[in-house]
Amino acid sequence: MTVNINIQEAKVAFSELLNRVSRGEEITITQDGVAIARLVPVNQNPVKRIPGSAKGLITISPDFDAPLPDDILASFEG
């Protein structure tokens, strides 16, 4: 569950917020009702990435770096 706290409250209670986050809670800090930051716990046991684990699942077209057709290229120009 994410809790929203305005920036003024966060300044006053920062240590307590860090304690809550360390117990697994997520805190969103808001300013004028708009989310500006999120405090989340650090993952102490990240999943190890295995190089090459997607081998055979991704294909790249032989012409992936060919110039774009003129009509598509024109849509990027203003």
Rank of each mutant, 00 (worst) to 15 (best):
S53D: 13
S75P: 00
V40A: 08
P46S: 03
F64Q: 02
N4G: 02
D71Q: 14
D65P: 02
I58T: 08
V34Y: 09
L73S: 15
F76Q: 05
L17E: 04
F76D: 06
Q8M: 10
E77K: 08
L17S: 03
N19R: 08
I27D: 07
I36T: 10
A54Q: 12
I50G: 00
F14P: 10
G33D: 15
A35T: 06
Q44L: 14
V40F: 10
V40C: 00
A13P: 03
A74D: 14
E77L: 09
I58M: 14
P46N: 00
T28C: 09
F76Y: 15
E16S: 15
V34D: 14
E77N: 12
L18Y: 02
D70I: 05
I72K: 09
V47R: 13
D70C: 04
I58C: 04
K11M: 12
S53I: 11
S75D: 13
L18W: 05
K11C: 09
D32S: 07
F76H: 04
T59C: 02
V40Q: 10
N45M: 02
F14V: 08
V12N: 13
I29T: 08
P67T: 01
Q8E: 14
P46I: 03
Q31K: 11
L68S: 05
T28I: 03
F76I: 10
R38I: 05
Q31I: 04
A74P: 06
F76M: 07
I27C: 09
I5D: 03
K48C: 03
I60C: 01
P51W: 11
I50W: 05
D70Q: 13
F76L: 14
I7H: 04
A66I: 02
A13G: 14
S15I: 08
T2V: 15
G33V: 11
L17P: 01
S22K: 12
D65I: 00
K48W: 04
G78H: 06
N43D: 15
L68G: 01
E16Y: 06
P51F: 04
A74W: 00
N6K: 04
L68A: 09
M1S: 11
F76W: 09
K55W: 08
E9R: 10
